[in-house]
Design a protein around this nucleic acid. Structure first.
Lengths: 194, 194
DNA sequence: GGGCCCATGTAAGTCGTTACATGATTTT
DNA sequence: AAAATCATGTAACGACTTACATGGGCCC
């Protein structure tokens, strides 16, 4: 009954959706859940071994020449996956955003320094959107053809979130340009050069 | 030149804004940056010691009866803070959201199981919004009175983000109720009971 | 033959949470 | 007198990233 680690959750889920190898799992995450549930080789391979030991997955080792371990869910693995998906525990939500922290602390910087952060975040959002629309969207669409509706819905979340963020920062940018036009220099309770 | 740890960034920033003790820093984060830059005692106290060793902060130990270490930024600490705030390195963005992962993997569950996740996330969003409007907003407003514009702007980000999310999930909920009315049962490429 | 993709793994270091332990002061 | 708040810290554990190490197969 020991609960699944974060990486175990995505591994079991992707095996269920058809992924086979550790490499596969990494590649699929990059084209789907990367934004909100990343996983690296350093987590994936050891976790696959642990899951095998716990009999939640089974490895059918290498039939071809190339060294390769193909994993599938055991019945216990299917059960564990379904149990996690349907339980009503707290849903983890972790968010860390350096642009917001810098913005929060920006009152003693110049307007331009603050704007630089906003613009840097917006540039990153654009790159991410290009990624989403170029790399992720086609794969999400493929799924729909095979009866998978939800990966596409979640792809939409990613795009919508990024678009929302960009609009929020665009508005903040305009406000900073306008409101701080007269108070252009550094300021703050403690003075700024001391 | 060794760059600041994540917790060092928020510590230096909050000291600059007037926080004094480790306890203080924790309390202030809870009423401001918690959503996107959490910090726990287990990080804060050891990090304050490290920053003191690195001469970025100075501790004026306990004048009152109660055991208490008051920290202030040194000149090097101010510089390090400003350097980080104005550099143009990548802006960290980390996001982990279990509701989205469950949604992504929900195609072989029943419609009701998927809806349960959506509704659980919406309930959490409502609690968070109440927190924001009840606890965080007043403190953000106080700052404005003292010439701090940006904490309030960032408070707005928190609220706007939560409101956006709730609307997104509300729409998803309606779509799930409608689109999946006929496809109510479990399904999936691999079958669902095996 | 070179470059890219497939494929697996480990080691070191970093970062973080939680629970525990302690105790003074202030408020009710 | 009890409960809440102020205050500091440590230990154990969990999770993650990055860099390193290795090698086969496929395509040009």
């Amino acid at each position: 009954m020991s609960s699944l680690t974060p990486t175990a959750k995505v591994i079991l889920g992707l095996l269920r959706l058809g992924a086979r190898t550790g490499y596969d799992i990494k590649r699929v995450t990059e084209r789907s859940v990367q934004l909100f549930w990343g996983a690296s080789y350093g987590q994936i391979y050891p976790e696959l071994r642990r899951l095998e030991e716990a009999r939640l997955v089974r490895a059918t080792s290498a039939e071809g020449a190339r060294r390769r371990r193909e994993y599938t869910l055991t019945r216990a693995g299917e059960r564990a996956l379904r149990e996690w998906l349907t339980n009503t525990n707290e849903l983890l939500f972790d968010y860390r955003d350096e642009a917001l922290l810098k913005l929060f602390l920006g009152d003693f910087l110049s307007r331009d320094d603050v704007l630089a952060t906003v613009r840097a975040r917006r540039a990153w959002i654009q790159l991410s959107l290009d990624m989403f629309r170029g790399e992720i969207e086609p794969h999400a669409r493929e799924g729909v053809a095979e009866g998978e509706q939800l990966p596409y819905l979640v792809y939409r979340y990613g795009v919508d979130f990024l678009v929302w963020m960009d609009r929020w920062y665009a508005k903040a940018e305009r406000e900073l340009e306008r409101d701080l036009d007269n108070a252009g220099g550094p300021k703050g309770r403690l003075g700024h050069t001391q």
